[in-house]
Design a protein around this nucleic acid. Structure first.
Lengths: 199, 199, 199, 199
DNA sequence: TATGAATGAGCCTTCATTCAT
DNA sequence: CATGAATGAAGGCTCATTCAT
């Protein structure tokens, strides 16, 4: 009869999520350092003190968010590993990942996390881990594409995947800031990526 | 007759610069919001109150820095407008600009300014202005290259310059975080850029 | 029939002691006001909420400790009432009590309790009661010693016992702070006490 | 014309004193750890933030107080070094110092400082320094008294002065707590001290 | 122009205690 | 009796900014 225990655990987990959501919303609206714990508490409908039953510090909330961010790339990794023609797979990935990175709120939060990562090693760690997982999957795909003659061999090396990601992320982030037409941007990105992989 | 006034003016300008340098150093070290005015004052060897004789607020210091950042792209704009073969010009620019963006401190500061720009329109304004100036110059070069058949025509449109800049900046920024080998990265970027411009 | 109840009672009493020990250790290490209930709970291997099943408040823990302190003088009272030559008895008592007061942890706790007693009447009550019990016993011994001509009569009055205790306690407390040689100190105290009681 | 500078300096010093007085009053009333910075600020008629222009931390206020305490023994040291008959000098000192230590507020503050000294080395340092200065002066007097045959030689050693101080301080502190008749106490102390120094 | 004391709102965090489970 | 999530007031301290000198 572990259900009462589980109930409590579930409730606690829910609260944690609640808090994390509130924190994310606040950080997006006002930035990590401008957001006060009181704001987060109010937004999460939780008492100030209780915040600390779920996260030992504000910093740890950001870590929590960074980890969420980390796990948000999982579907893209999966997408890259599907057994379809590399060029098709890449095209789909590019579109989907660009869409994902173009989300305005996520982009803002991403920037804040990145900025914090420059000063806080434990944030950087999470940050880079997600990135390298993705890059590795993409690298695999690229090499598979070269082998299957889907892509030209000339310029594919271990940095290429990273650069493609840099390009997608950078363009998406900038696009979400100055709010230019994302469709056109998407097309241009695709063109550039595939130009790089031509025979 | 106005020479004593000029001396004062010069001295004041020097102080301003002194303060701005100190602010930049502090922002790089601890971030904009973590840095206190006292810290800046101490680092600039200026009294706390005197800070406000040179900048009306902390926010204005960041604007000052953003403007400095803005003017730091001037040489690159000039570089892009020189009358040399577009492909040569582009190669040189790519290298120089990547180098420029790879500076660790500058990258950190850049990130902080960008993060602030998401919430503060007057920062965003300066931020985007510098970017679009550069993008315009690069676009000109690309079209010139297409005209002169230096570059293939296929994919060059008004977004291409922005994407190239996104790529360079994104790669440089990431490189300055995880400190991987910049030389290899540079070569890969060049390859990708020129692949995109092939006939 | 009442044995299960007794078992529970015993277990509870054990827990109470456990908690009190933990509290004492914490108070010694960090002081009464610096110590948090969570700290005590952790040290006692008891849940935070359960603390309140044994003591209604933090304050009551200090009272509990003060009462323990109170009862720690019982053996000394007994020692003073033994039927041996007063001078011998006094000498033994002086040594034993000095030793007792010289314990570093006990001295720290004692000081904290005393400081709290200045503001909290119920602490003060316990605190002074223990003291006066001891002083009365010592006074009896002194008068017995005067009667039996063991001690000179000149200066023995109702304050003398208190002063002797002040001397022993004060010296022990100071000794436990600056950690000078306790043996020498002990000898000097004895000399001074007996000098005061000479014929 | 350094008067304007001095004026400011004087004002600042006055404020510091003001704050220290307020802190002392608060610490006496409610204890060091119970007193909040806001209380001190209010009592000193100073803004909360400004407190920190005069003391870097609450801890430093206690140090300031401990140093004041330290300097409060100076007149007693002088008294002990006057060129009068040792026995007369000692009697006067005993009375004066007892009176000094009997002050209720000072005793309370003293206890708080002592309690803090057990955990904070920099408090202990100040605390013990004042004590040893006094003890040294008293030791000198005692030896002078032995030489001049004012005092019997038997028990005077390097600990004696400390013990006399322990006695006076301990008795005064206790007296200020349970508020028994100080005059009688004073007489008993004197008797005990001089009994210890008899031929 | 230059100084740094002064302001009080705000910071993150910890507190003793309660109470549903 | 046992648990630990929940509460919100209070903790010490820092903040950007002002202003008398």
């Amino acid at each position: 009869m572990d259900s009462p225990l589980n109930n409590r655990e579930i409730a606690s987990r829910k609260r944690r999520e609640q808090v994390l959501d509130a924190a994310a919303a606040c950080f997006v609206e006002r930035g990590f350092h401008q957001t006060g714990m009181r704001e987060i508490a109010k937004r999460a409908s939780v008492s100030l003190g209780n915040l600390y039953n779920h996260f030992p510090s504000k910093h740890d909330m950001l870590i929590g968010l960074a980890e969420l961010e980390l796990s948000s790339v999982d579907p893209f990794v999966e997408m890259l590993m599907r057994n379809v023609r590399p060029s098709v797979c890449l095209r789909e990935f590019t579109r989907a990942y660009f869409q994902h990175c173009s989300d305005h709120d996520a982009a803002i939060l991403y920037l804040d996390i990145a900025a914090e990562a420059m000063r806080e090693p434990d944030i950087a760690e999470r940050f880079l881990q997600a990135r390298s997982t993705l890059a590795e999957a993409l690298t695999s795909l690229l090499f598979k594409g070269v082998e299957s003659k889907d892509f030209g061999p000339s310029i594919v090396d271990t940095s290429t995947a990273d650069l493609i990601l840099d390009l997608i992320e950078g363009a998406a982030a900038r696009g979400s800031i100055d709010a230019s037409k994302p469709d056109m941007l998407m097309a241009s990105i695709e063109a550039m990526v595939f130009a790089a992989l031509r025979h």
